[in-house]
Nucleic acid binder design. Structure first.
Lengths: 138, 138
DNA sequence: GACACTCGTCTACAAAGGTAGACGCTAGAC
DNA sequence: GTCTAGCGTCTACCTTTGTAGACGAGTGTC
């Protein structure tokens, strides 16, 4: 259970992927410029990572001029959820609550987002049936 | 920033590591038995993963009889926090809130834990200075 | 129409990770 | 005292990931 599937992004790929997500859509040139501000990767390396992300189905391309514009193919939410669930799998009864607390603290949520999250928590507390029994399920 | 450090566990190693965490401490034999119930890894593979986790400083051994008992060397909390922060780095303004909501829903927190989390959220909402100013950006 | 730029593709190779066999040592059984 | 089952170590090999050069094609320029 929960090993990395072959399509899951690798750490280097995540860096490229989240950059494209944040921008919405980016031509190759700008992906390269943005990443070279943070890393010392060569142009070639970044092009390889982009191609692998396309191969794995995370990004799609649109031909514009003589180049590509990259954008998300799968929804960022679903990719993040998948990664998030892998994280939860690694925690256990004793560690999951402090882990979530830490994430909430670090997440920099705005107050309206905090309010929404609190509402969610209230609804879970009121209606425990909405809470999936997180046991040994597959 | 935020690429995987060489000591970070790999996906296969995470599976071993979280098993040991959950049990607290386990002799090799039991690690192998538990993992072979979930995977088709050979005995040798599991022994290699255990050794690599010890090399990376995640697990420590205590000699018992002619074998070892494995237990956490670093605190699970700190390892999980590290992994959690890598996850947050991949999200952005638009995706972090739904991601956290999803995690809370899936986490199966007990109601006392939910209550604690709500208290944390309240304190963050009341005192924005406690909240790291994570970006006025788009 | 030739040139320089820029792109995407192809190929390559080293390092890390996944997977596992072989083997020598030791403790308990008889 | 010998045998055997189990344990840790060593070594190995294949795949994936990280990293990047080489190259041919399209395009705008003069």
């Amino acid at each position: 259970m929960s090993s990395r599937a072959p399509e899951d992004p690798t750490p280097a790929e995540w860096q490229v992927l989240s950059l494209v997500w944040k921008a919405g859509a980016l031509p190759t040139r700008e992906v390269i410029a943005a990443l070279q501000a943070d890393t010392d990767w060569s142009t070639s390396t970044i092009k390889t990572l982009l191609r692998r992300l396309v191969d794995k189905g995370h990004l799609k391309t649109k031909a514009v001029g003589n180049g590509f514009v990259y954008s998300a193919k799968r929804s960022p939410q679903s990719s993040l959820r998948r990664a998030g669930e892998a994280l939860l799998d690694r925690a256990n009864e004793a560690t999951v609550a402090p882990l979530l607390a830490h994430l909430v603290k670090r997440s920099g949520l705005r107050s309206d987002e905090l309010a929404e999250l609190r509402e969610l928590i209230d609804s879970l507390a009121e209606d425990p049936s909405a809470k999936p029994t997180q046991g040994e399920d597959a």
